[in-house]
């Protein structure tokens, strides 16, 4: 059952990801991206990481994509049509894509060993089956407090930067 669900979700994810980059209309693109993000949330639920799954929907679909659409809606589609469809940096893009593909195939070639590298040290997460949320919270505010705070400072810097760029006089 889980395997079938995985493949169904994978199919949805791949289809909508491809549609996201190939769609000509940016709003359509955003809608396809929403579908892809929902499929990713499905993966989290499948892995029984229901907290991360719910947050994925809340933050990405309900927050970030709404902001995206907010901006895209104001863009004139006629003006977009005149823009070149392929970015000028496509050569760099191709190089990066090839490197990423090589890395991923190496990991897949090595098999399950490569999955063990990113794992947390055993014993950090003492999770009982039911309280997924509590486990995330406990670890986030104890073991990984510093990375968490650095990430929030980064976000703050990004917000300040956006405000500085957008305002003519402060």
């Amino acid at each position: 059952m889980e395997t079938y669900l995985f493949y169904a979700l994978a199919l949805i994810l791949v289809t909508f990801s491809i549609l996201t980059v190939t769609a000509r209309n940016p709003v359509r693109s955003a809608v396809y991206l929403v579908s892809a993000l929902l499929a990713v949330a499905g993966f989290f639920f499948l892995l029984e990481a229901e907290f991360v799954g719910a947050v994925q929907v809340l933050v990405y679909v309900g927050g970030i994509m709404v902001l995206f659409l907010f901006v895209i809606m104001l863009v004139s589609i006629e003006a977009l049509d005149r823009q070149p469809k392929v970015s000028r940096q496509w050569r760099t893009g191709v190089v990066l894509a090839v490197v990423l593909c090589l890395e991923l195939s190496l990991l897949i070639f090595r098999g399950t060993v490569s999955l063990e590298e990113g794992l947390a040290e055993p014993g950090i997460i003492t999770t009982t089956e039911t309280m997924n949320t509590e486990a995330v919270g406990t670890v986030l505010y104890s073991t990984y407090l510093l990375p968490f705070e650095i990430a929030s400072v980064l976000l703050l810097v990004a917000i300040v930067g956006a405000v500085v760029l957008a305002k003519k006089e402060i």
Binding site: V31, E50, V57, V61, G62, V66, L69, T130, M131
Partner: peptide, 26 residues
Amino acid sequence: DINIALLFVLSISSVGILGIILGGWA
């Protein structure tokens, strides 16, 4: 009865707004 019910409510109801935005734009 799921153990993230409240988060579920918040996250699902935040999806509904997409309908309003898309309807207005489309």
